[in-house]
């Protein structure tokens, strides 16, 4: 049922690694290390700037894929992968988009489960990839039936 959206992409969205958001995010995961939040510490670090924690891209906007409808309830987040070329620097602009990389179904204990593979990308202003993200979202049979109805 999601086969027709495989390969679809969103348009790029400009995001900024905002200092305040990095601080709030670091606090929310109990990781208020000065490398993330102390300006002087950041300047004196090898990065010359504060950086963001590796799961920070959760806060970015990636645009929407019109053809992709996912309910906001009943989805299971199965797996998550990040790949970085370097850490994200506070203050920089990151251009983000997402694509539906794959969809397949498997029979499990709770009936036929759907697996959607979403890929997300973050690039600098020169289109160099800074990070990629792969997310496996599991759609249970109950939710799939709701969607078909």
């Amino acid at each position: 049922m999601f086969n027709e959206v495989i390969g679809k992409r969103s348009d790029k969205v400009k995001n900024i690694v905002e200092r305040g958001m990095v601080k709030k995010f670091a606090e929310s995961i109990g990781d208020s290390h000065p490398i993330f939040i102390d300006e002087v510490f950041g300047k004196e670090s090898r990065y010359g700037q504060n950086i963001a924690p590796p799961t920070f891209p959760r806060v970015f906007e990636y645009g929407t894929i019109d053809e992709l409808y996912l309910p906001n309830k009943g989805l299971i987040h199965g797996e998550q992968t990040y790949h970085y070329e370097r850490p994200l620097l506070v203050g920089e602009e990151i251009y983000c988009y997402m694509e539906v990389a794959d969809y397949y179904e498997k029979n499990g204990g709770n009936g036929l489960m759907g697996f959607i593979i979403l890929k997300r990308y973050g690039e600098d202003s020169e289109e160099n990839t800074i990070f990629t993200e792969k997310q496996v979202v599991i759609i249970t049979e109950t939710v799939r039936k709701e969607l078909v109805r």
């Binding site: 990781d31 590796p54 199965g78 990040y82 850490p87």
Partner: peptide
């Protein structure tokens, strides 16, 4: 995090 001056997390995979 305490090691971010020595390197960085290049790949992070979780199930």
């Amino acid at each position: 995090t305490p090691y971010l001056e020595d390197g960085f997390i290049q790949d992070y995979t979780i199930r």
